[in-house]
Design a protein around this nucleic acid. Structure first.
Lengths: 330, 330
DNA sequence: CTGTTAGCGCTTTCAA
DNA sequence: TTGAAAGCGCTAACAG
């Protein structure tokens, strides 16, 4: 592998000259430049970016760490982040936190391989994150609120309110009983949505019934299974609030299999508004999670910090009610 | 930001000693080690991974470059790649080729920021890829066959055969006319699937009709629109072959909106077998693209090359027919 | 068991 | 306009 030194030698110039020629900075005799470029071509020279990053103490890279690289939810988030990052002429790297704190994620959090990190990974502990943030190395966390610390920013959505409003809508449209299929118990997103649901029930003078509160793990399959259980219990509620759309899709499936019509026999509402939601049969009424905006904001904030601008330590985004046909046909 | 030098000074030892202590390599007096670790803690020392990579001339990282970070198709591919990569104690980075040859992708292809690259990005040109591959820097291309070159490997699926079999199935189940909604014209995957379709038509003595060959851009929306056009043309075929499942989902939507029943009124078959396919109504019959296997193979091959083992320059994977209910109910 | 030292490949001041 | 040289932070001979 040819280095810049080889190129310089071949061209009969000093390394510094070669560097100038290769990077197009600085004015120089056209001929010298040509000679260097020619030498580089002959030697098939490729710059070593690692050496450059080290020298410059800057990587011009933002890392986005996700607990799961897949799933419909992340698409829009990534898009939001990517747009901002590219605009700033930075690069975006996505990596997984699979393997917890010995994962690739850790390398990026700890080893200065990126200039900043945006994190949506429930399997990385609060402490690990907090210890990684340091002056000049911003971390934006998207799924929890962390104690205030320099260079550490939280962005969350108002899940509680979203869950509350979703449930209220069910009740306002005539349901007198509503189940809730929630996500993993260690997910604060799910917990808050569930709290909103419970509060809405209470505010309507309904008491919660544990047989109607089931765990669907935030997955399609989980939603399907939980709904099956609901059905097999015999005593079906008028409506169900799925704490995310993926579970609602699974649930819809289960409902159809049992010959139940949505929304006539049972109303359902989801959460997130994933791309597929409008294409379901019936189109899914849901609380939209501002994924794209969250990505945009996260990258905006990260550059603010990088540029030394002051930022808040916690931002909250609101959900938006999306009315379609799974609760009631207009 | 504290460096290893600071740690050494604080602990009153040489940098090398600090390095040994920090990396746990080499046996050393427990007390010295403790002293170094303590100093590191006090100074909040974090190693600089970039410097380490430079020194070692190795990043222990594989980059996966995709033209689009999102979409259901990639999930399984990523999973396949990730499993192998992590098992080898390497890290996996995913980045987008958005912005073509000035993108993040280019940095990884050209600047030694990873030890190898797996590429599925139609917007990076053949030449650019070929010029990037070099001894000791393997590149695995997943969407085309490139001229033989050291360190350059192609893995493709037999799209032609897949398209052929999909169409044959339609015809065998009674269709006497079949449309094809294909993907982008610069996608060789799409082109080959289309060729397979045409050959199957011909082998059955049917002649192809350009009004039944439409571009759906491999997207949900594109499939929906193309199908609308098909319907509005008035003369509907008995069946349609969608060159990917996403378009089939859009198409199914359009068909339902027009009151057409699948498969009674019109049979449809997809390609890829994305996660959602079995959950559609009716469950989608499709040709399964071995995404997971492709990811597995790609990473297997990349490590073979890295370890100096010989590999073929081109691997082909076969598709698999998945019978569900969108062509005919059993 | 620990310290000294030579780079990894590059950018960038400073001097010529 | 070009060259010499320092040094980014780290690892790993090699010497002691």
């Amino acid at each position: 592998m040819a280095t810049i030194k080889d190129v310089a030698k071949q061209a009969g110039v000093a390394v510094s000259t070669a560097s100038y020629a290769l990077n197009g900075t600085k004015k120089m005799k056209q001929e010298t430049k040509e000679r260097v470029l020619q030498a580089a071509r002959e030697l098939q020279y490729q710059k070593n970016g690692v050496a450059m990053d080290l020298k410059k103490s800057k990587t011009k890279t933002i890392a986005l760490i996700l607990s799961d690289l897949t799933g419909p939810f992340y698409s829009e988030l990534i898009r939001g982040v990517q747009e901002e990052v590219l605009e700033k002429k930075y690069d975006l790297l996505v990596c997984s936190s699979y393997g917890n704190e010995s994962s690739t994620a850790a390398k990026f959090l700890r080893e200065k391989r990126a200039d900043g990190v945006i994190l949506l990974a429930h399997n990385i502990s609060d402490d690990f994150i907090t210890e990684s943030a340091r002056t000049g190395f911003p971390i934006i966390v998207l799924d929890r609120v962390l104690p205030e610390k320099e260079a550490l920013t939280s962005i969350t959505v108002n899940n509680y309110k979203g869950g509350y409003e979703a449930t209220r809508h069910l009740l306002e449209k005539g349901a007198v009983s509503a189940a809730c299929i929630h996500g993993p118990i260690n997910s604060s997103d799910s917990q808050e949505r569930l709290s909103g649901y419970e509060q809405a029930l209470q505010d309507s003078g309904l008491k919660k019934d544990s047989k109607w509160i089931l765990n669907g793990s935030f997955t399609h399959e989980g939603g399907y299974q939980a709904t099956k259980i609901l059905i097999h219990q015999g005593d079906l509620p008028n409506a169900v609030f799925y704490a995310n759309d993926e579970m609602a899709i699974g649930g819809l499936e289960a409902l159809k299999e049992s010959g139940l019509n949505v929304p006539e026999d049972i109303a359902i509402i989801g959460f997130d508004d994933i791309q597929l939601a409008p294409y379901l049969q019936p189109p899914l009424t849901t609380m939209r999670h501002p994924k794209y905006e969250m990505g945009k904001l996260a990258s905006h904030v990260i550059f603010q910090v990088l540029e030394g601008q002051p930022v808040k330590s916690h931002y909250t985004l609101e959900t938006e009610f999306i009315n379609r046909e799974s609760v009631s046909k207009q």
